[in-house]
Design a binder for these strands. Structure first.
Lengths: 214, 214
DNA sequence: ACTTACAAACAGAACGTTCGGTCTGTAAAC
DNA sequence: GTTTACAGACCGAACGTTCTGTTTGTAAGT
């Protein structure tokens, strides 16, 4: 028995990243995913090709195909990066800091999550999931998990009219903000989107409230 | 002066369709667009190719390229078909019939407009407009016109807290319903979407009301 | 400590397929 | 007889994927 079996999983272990191989590898993956986000935002899922990502990231073709066996695998990995980012605004309020008021939470979600390169890339990915079976197979479970996590995170700090109302309302808010990205095609005035967010936040704070302490 | 100049506009005149040529032509265009809607729904914008539409419509390649010089032109024409359909639920209430209550209006918009093959196709088109410059050029003005028309149609029958509030709220509702199409990727339970629509409608009817008669 | 073995990390050429667009040919309407 | 409405072959480009090198880190044997 000469040596240990080579790593099979493409999901790196918790304690990996210590060796030079792993560190280089992770850095390359992150670099490629960052380029993929930019391409998804600018060109959309269909026009996001290996060639485009390769150019944007400044890496070789082989580097991409080595880490991601297919286009779907690349986009799925990129989606996981985006999802973990999208959980942060709620997560950093979990422990010591006080949660934001509903109005501020919605405005912040729009400004720093949905209406950003990452947010627009995520819309592209969700849209692609509808028709790309391979992508759907790679992402469906992860999206369901993330959704559960997001809803649980909200009910910890906010309440509606009953127990499950808060998560229902927050799902509504997420849907609205996502739809707003597409609404940009209907109006030439970008400020109108801001007015919509503001009005929506005003409506939401009549239904969703900070959970009273204790 | 031998004959009138050949048709240039892809928008048929009001009084056309009388000759056999025109009737056949319009029927073919409608047939192709109907197939395009099905393809956009099932395969998405990127995978909606001439070959797919050709197969779905049961026509030759030449028939498509004859009526639509480019893929973008085909999709743009399809979008116009969908937009005119999406205006109907509000339009048939314009004259004799009484407008629907807010709650019913939202549920009806979801069931018969957004959550249908046409509604999902429209989401694909709006998403594609973000990155496809040629498609954007063909559709931007039409979308802006449609948006104005939709907002005007709403303010005729509904009121919010002030003059422009109703159209703001209706734009919000449209964005939410659109975003809901993409939310389907987050939950394995399709009934959850229905609960979201119901809850949203309940929230909306506290802000948007039927215009009092007179 | 030095060699050897080997797998992972790239690099880049090559592949077959499919795409959107064009181009020629034919039949029917006007 | 001229134009329109199709039919279908054809083309170059771009796509995702696969393949064959080359380099590099690292652990095992000596």
């Amino acid at each position: 028995m000469p040596r240990p079996a080579p790593k099979v999983s493409d999901q790196p272990d918790q304690d990996s990243g210590t060796s030079q191989h792993d560190r280089r590898s992770q850095a390359m993956r992150a670099r490629i995913c960052r380029a993929a986000i930019a391409c998804l935002d600018r060109y959309g899922y269909a026009e996001t090709s290996f060639a485009r990502v390769q150019e944007k990231a400044g890496v070789s073709r082989g580097a991409i195909t080595h880490h991601f066996p297919s286009k779907q695998a690349l986009v799925a990995a990129t989606a996981l990066v985006l999802l973990s980012k999208a959980l942060e605004p709620a997560r950093n309020r979990d422990s010591s800091d006080a949660p934001m008021p509903v109005h501020a939470l919605i405005l912040a979600s729009w400004d720093s999550v949905v209406n950003s390169a990452g947010g627009r890339a995520m819309v592209e990915i969700l849209s692609a999931c509808r028709s790309d079976r391979a992508l759907h197979a790679l992402l469906a479970d992860k999206l369901h998990d993330w959704d559960r996590q997001s809803r649980r995170s909200i009910t910890r700090h906010y309440v509606g009219t009953d127990a499950e109302d808060a998560e229902l309302l927050w799902s509504i808010a997420r849907s609205f903000l996502r739809g707003l990205i597409l609404h940009e095609q209907f109006t030439a005035d970008p400020a109108y989107l801001g007015r919509m967010v503001e009005r929506f936040a005003r409506m939401m704070e009549t239904q969703l409230h900070l959970r009273p302490p204790g």
